[in-house]
Design a binder for these strands. Sequence first.
DNA 1: GAGGTTTGTTGTTGTCTGCAACATATGATG
DNA 2: CATCATATGTTGCAGACAACAACAAACCTC
Lengths: 362, 362
Amino acid sequence: MALPPAVELRRRNRAALLQQLHRHGPQTRAALTEALGLNRSTIGALATELAESGHIEETTGQSTGSAGRPSTLVACVPQSITVAAVEIRADRLRFALVGLGGEVLERSETALDEGADPMTAVSVITGGTAAASAEAVAAVPGLVDEGTVAHSTELGWIDRDAAADLEAATGREWQVVDTATAAAVGEWTRGDARDSRKLLYLHGGRGLTAGLVIEGRAQRGGSIQLGHIVVEPGGRECACGLRGCLEAEMEAFGFGEDFETTTLAAGMGDAAARDRLRRFGEDLGWALGAVVTATGPDEILFGGWLRELYLSTAAPVRSALAETTLPHLRSKLRLRTPVLGDEGALIGAAETGFAALFDQMR
Amino acid sequence: MALPPAVELRRRNRAALLQQLHRHGPQTRAALTEALGLNRSTIGALATELAESGHIEETTGQSTGSAGRPSTLVACVPQSITVAAVEIRADRLRFALVGLGGEVLERSETALDEGADPMTAVSVITGGTAAASAEAVAAVPGLVDEGTVAHSTELGWIDRDAAADLEAATGREWQVVDTATAAAVGEWTRGDARDSRKLLYLHGGRGLTAGLVIEGRAQRGGSIQLGHIVVEPGGRECACGLRGCLEAEMEAFGFGEDFETTTLAAGMGDAAARDRLRRFGEDLGWALGAVVTATGPDEILFGGWLRELYLSTAAPVRSALAETTLPHLRSKLRLRTPVLGDEGALIGAAETGFAALFDQMR
DNA sequence: GAGGTTTGTTGTTGTCTGCAACATATGATG
DNA sequence: CATCATATGTTGCAGACAACAACAAACCTC
């Protein structure tokens, strides 16, 4: 180690300070002292150092109304560290450049031609920003395992080394996460699920995926192929080679990405359509039962088009869940819909990048 | 903080050194220097300190046969830190006192009367050792969530605060883990599964439970009720209130704790018995498929009486698994039996205690 | 305006780890 | 068997760090 001895400790504290500001927004120095458990003088030293390096800005003279010398307010400078996030779908590509503190600095979107490979479009949409950002993260709908997409119904990828392809296209390293996990991280960090210890996010696109996040952190292997839980043993043949997958049933029922327009608007008055909804809701509940028993989450969010499905057809989902999970697992389980809407995956991808950054820093 | 500044760093290094010795056995100082990435002088300072406090012993003059001054061998003193581990079953209680380094210092076992509460027996079997040990951990077959046993088929407990009851019986704090998770930790730490990143241990007792361990660490909520995955929708009523649970099928087939003697020895020549085996193997495979899809392990160990089941009837389990999981999840998945046999849970419980200790120390 | 209160600043102190030089103990070489 | 090369423990020193205490600054209340 060429580094001086206790520099490590300093780095840890610096990272902790930045992370605190990133997560909880602008704060006074006194609040930071409290939150990090460090001495005033230590916070002072770190603050001046980070102010000189341009990562934070201090504004003084904020009278709080209470007694005592007013504390200086510390805020992080978004431009000082940026993370590039991309959400890949079959039909479109979304991009956001997110700054320290969580502010979205740039944002754009492109439609993709059916069947076109998104990788080339990624380098176009990110432009030079990807190279300039500290981290780059791509959210992909499918089963992701350390940079490779093992299976994606939506994109038709099987064992594709997406990280390598992204690096080839843009000239920089990429982290790859699945859309559901990214969205879970997003909802936990910037959404309404901060108090969830074990959060399961269900993402409905052309396929059905799920992501499990423990205490806000993505787990290796937290990417779950909800769509390929078998709900009808010996049932319909699925494109994946299995039989009776939830996704096969979904297709048979005619549900998918355009759920809202096709199904809800068109057929809610129709008894046959309601029956299809109920039956698919049950199938979803059955698959969910197995996942809940196996992973024990305390909160489930219905994202993508599953959001509309759940809002219109919660009862069969709940009752199927009740028939397949133990009371204890159900009692602490909340079922909800995400608050970040369609943005969750993009925001969560960026937050995954920031989490990796803070981990590296310490 | 009343403590001097960099004492924290010192503590971390001390804990790391002890953990290294605990996990990888006696080593030379040079090896420790390499493993911990610290300077020779730092290792020296820590070693003399730990030798004075009685945690390690240094033996010098071990000529290795290679050139250079022979390094002093460092070994931890088992008696200096001990962990009490108890495995609770319906019919018996096992106890082990494990010392630093993993050596079993004491060991005993008692039969329990049917229906008797094990808690009183715990204080008898541990004697004074529980109070004297640094940690005390109890392994319980069932769904464990932070000290409370939410559901245990074997013991008939529902939402029992086992940690509190153990504390009342013995006058000290206890950690509670489920038997399967403990066994998984044991197999990962002292068994043959050290290279598994995500290890799923299946435990067959009177009930069926499973435990998931990531990189050797038990996860909160890693306790899985394998027996209450529903494999026959609308099937037999289970004691838990659900219908078609794997455990209900198991009972119907007449399998259980005494699997080996009753089923294998008696009926392997019998076609009906073989058929029952095959059908239960299939059911197990189905349940397992859902768990594998939801958690994505790279190794599955069949423990308890599932060991014998798997050794005699692997084919239907494997084929059912093949029908319910994606190729990618299966390709990296090894199915095996544990090497620690019946001792896994006890050893793993102790290791869980040591892990908690090392975490506390830093 | 005086006193109390909270917070930033500065100088000091104790502890820590890495580094380099030295001491020590072995094997290899002739 | 003496010498050299090699690997390792030991010691003194320097750089760095965070806590602490005393002080200064800025606010509120009376």
